[in-house]
Amino acid sequence: MTQLALVIDLNVCVGCHACVTSCKEWNTSGAAGYLSDDRPYDADPTGCFFNRVQTFEVGAFPDTQTVHFPKSCLHCEEPPCVPVCPTGASYKRAEDGIVLVDYDKCIGCKYCSWACPYGVRELDEHQKVMKKCTLCVDRIYDEKLPERERKPACVLACPTNARLYGDIHDPDSQVSQAIRENAGYQLMPEWGTHPANHYLPRRKTVIRIHADELQRADNPLKIDGKLPKPALKEPSLDDVTSW
């Protein structure tokens, strides 16, 4: 069975928000209609977005990590948001595991959003239906698009390629390999939701310099006669023995 998902590599995400606005742009212009904004030019502008990039600080100065953390619907394998929906508007597709909302069925009761621990569903305040990341279901199967572009808008936009996309049930897929080889993990595993989206942790590359690497025969100072040598007057064996 297929389970499509995003794998987000926190090791390279620079928090640029490209995935945020490219998602907004694609989805606002897409077949399912706009994502509304309120008070766009006034105090406290607000709007419906499917994807947000948040920033956390880990540790205290000077050992601080600045972690940028993009988050959209995780397309849980056990999505708590689905069974609670009274209308069936929220559903998980059998064929590819994408969790979707049927805007034509949704009554806007918000119950599914209560049932999602991750805070990724947003009610469109003007269309009054629940919305969330669709995994760009209207792109990934669109045969009119060239093969390369049958990917989510945010994935194509991401300048650092921090967003990998594919089938996490296929052990040979790029995403499965990335999860396997880079200790990919899920968010809030404690609730048994089994998010399909995974995150790859920060990794740290260090260079170790061994002391002897600073002492080399070809030290250029030698050529200029400047490699320090002990002064001739310093004590040596010649001062104490004569064989």
């Binding site: 008070r39 406290d44 977005f49």
Partner: peptide, 16 residues
């Protein structure tokens, strides 16, 4: 890590 603090939720004017 025991010390994690959010600095930004990614938007400022509020959301759903």
């Amino acid at each position: 890590h025991p010390r994690i603090v959010q600095k930004s939720q990614g938007f400022m004017g509020g959301s759903f």
